[in-house]
Design a protein around this nucleic acid. Sequence first.
DNA 1: CTGTTAGCGCCTTCAA
DNA 2: TTGAAGGCGCTAACAG
Lengths: 369, 369
Amino acid sequence: MRRSSKSSSARRKPTINEVAKLAGVAVGTVSNVITGAVPVSEKLREKVQAVISNLDYHPNYVARSLKTSRTRMLGIIVPDLTIPFYPQIIRGVETAAHQRDYSLIAVSSEDDLNRERELLSLLRSQRMEGILLVTAAEPTSHTSILRITEEGIPLVLVDRIPDKVSVDSVSVEDAAAAQMGVEHLIAMGSQRIAIITGPLTLTNERERLRGYKSALRRAGLMPDDGLIWEGNLCRGDVAAMCRERLRDTTARPDAIFSTNGPTGLGVLRALRDCGLHTPEDIGFVTFDELVVEDVFLPSITTIVQPAFEIGFQAADILLKRIEGKSKHYKPVTVRLPATLAVRASSQIIAGTLAPSVHSSQNDVTTKPS
Amino acid sequence: MRRSSKSSSARRKPTINEVAKLAGVAVGTVSNVITGAVPVSEKLREKVQAVISNLDYHPNYVARSLKTSRTRMLGIIVPDLTIPFYPQIIRGVETAAHQRDYSLIAVSSEDDLNRERELLSLLRSQRMEGILLVTAAEPTSHTSILRITEEGIPLVLVDRIPDKVSVDSVSVEDAAAAQMGVEHLIAMGSQRIAIITGPLTLTNERERLRGYKSALRRAGLMPDDGLIWEGNLCRGDVAAMCRERLRDTTARPDAIFSTNGPTGLGVLRALRDCGLHTPEDIGFVTFDELVVEDVFLPSITTIVQPAFEIGFQAADILLKRIEGKSKHYKPVTVRLPATLAVRASSQIIAGTLAPSVHSSQNDVTTKPS
DNA sequence: CTGTTAGCGCCTTCAA
DNA sequence: TTGAAGGCGCTAACAG
């Protein structure tokens, strides 16, 4: 009666009780052999192990979690899984988490604040032991973040860091990275460099803009507000905006600096639509690597963020908090350097493309000073 | 005494009991307003809601799961998160799962059978309601798969389908896709086409090889075993193998067909090392899009798998099984068509690259017939 | 409609 | 070292 023997119908999952019964021991003993917390005599241990593998028994972690109030699970919320940057971060997190026997659950907010709120709520209900958060473009309110940390759930902000929230965070040195990119463009001979940004509500974007300006100033060039074009992270919209502004050939920039991947793709589309070629007609550098299906010839100079490393370090900080090893009250703030992958799209002066611009051998990589 | 008022120390998480007490109702009532399963009077409901938001109460899903024995979680195991193909599949799964209020937990087996076994075990212990599996290259044993499905956990195989396992599965039409790629190469004038495969223990790889052969035969060309090079999915090893074999200039193929992304990258590296250029010196087509940092000029013709769709459909099948809507005993088998993105690397005959091979406008996309 | 209660499967004292 | 018992937080069934 215990177990229906209908052939292909689902068997019930065995419990620790059945294991104990079959092995002729008490449940406590079974638990001890499983967790290894308390030593068990050789004999009993073997008997129990045998029953476990016979039954194909798998301890119920949800029951265990309820008892121990630990889930060994981490959650990460990113705004968009389709931007390659985020999956890379997630890989970094997964790696760090896995090393310490944590699982990761990754979800996407679609850059929507409400969705993000729901997700945060879900992760809390699921009793994640720690949360990694890349906020939506319209940034998460301080209070909703604080509510989480105050409840004892460690949280680290990743990539997009709202202003003066005192929480752990890791991201890239935005200003320095942007400055590096713009300085490169200047070195290649550009004088009128337009910058296309994402929403300036994002601190990152403001920082990148800052880096752009300081590069210009250092080169004795005056930032021109007419060359600062604010986009919305939507490829199509950015393309439309650029087409519009590039139409005015008299005031056309001689180079474009894009502060993120989706924007960069929008710019490229606009350039194509306007019949402009890089680098002959206009120089181009963008933050973030682009996906290959959208790659244009010639190849694009990009600012590469250490995405894996960002994720890995963020997870590391989080795990230290969880395991209580990090007793600092002060939030940890990590800022990693980006690198510049020089490719064809910015070789303005070099002019004649070497006929062998053929492979990534031609890539030059530098770190910001 | 109930709650320490030390300022920055973690508050305990409120339980349904506290909510009930503060709201002056019974726990059952609180449960009813939360789940909505049983109607509750306007008054009480509001009172309860108020307490909930005051307390910032989040129902403990692990307790709920223990009671209901449902987790609303899906697990997916892929062999390698760094191959862009898999994150794309995962996005498809995530999308489908989210639509029905399931969460997804994605893990990587590193293409290792033991690791895969551990992960399967983990997912079972975590009481995932369904499992998506891309097996390791050394394929998962039938019995370990059956043990899972027999226990009532729906499982669908994705991308890599072991021979004659009667389980739900979704993947691409490997043979047709490969045939399409090779026929394209033939149409461009190639006569001696080498194929570089992954381990032929994988059914996919064997199918792709089959497609290659039938394309040749249909064109009246004899498959030459000397042009079938079996690799191991490791970029470096594949590159070494190709360098070796390409050295023999007398028997050199006039085109190369690669059956997967990592292998394709290895081939490209070898070509570079040998000073061979596509398409002038040798034609080239590969399965799967490559990541941009590895993109070579000129652009590469690829066979594009509908990765998102694969993931989405797999999740759909899985969810139907979970919700018991799919009463079929017969396993569902879905095979999706791939498309061919024709780019520069295969334009052997065309010879003169149009000077405007500039954008993806030049891409031509076709479906296998 | 509301309140009470009995477990879900496991871990952890505590005694033996 | 082993066994017995309580309870983690919640839902579902039932009684009021």
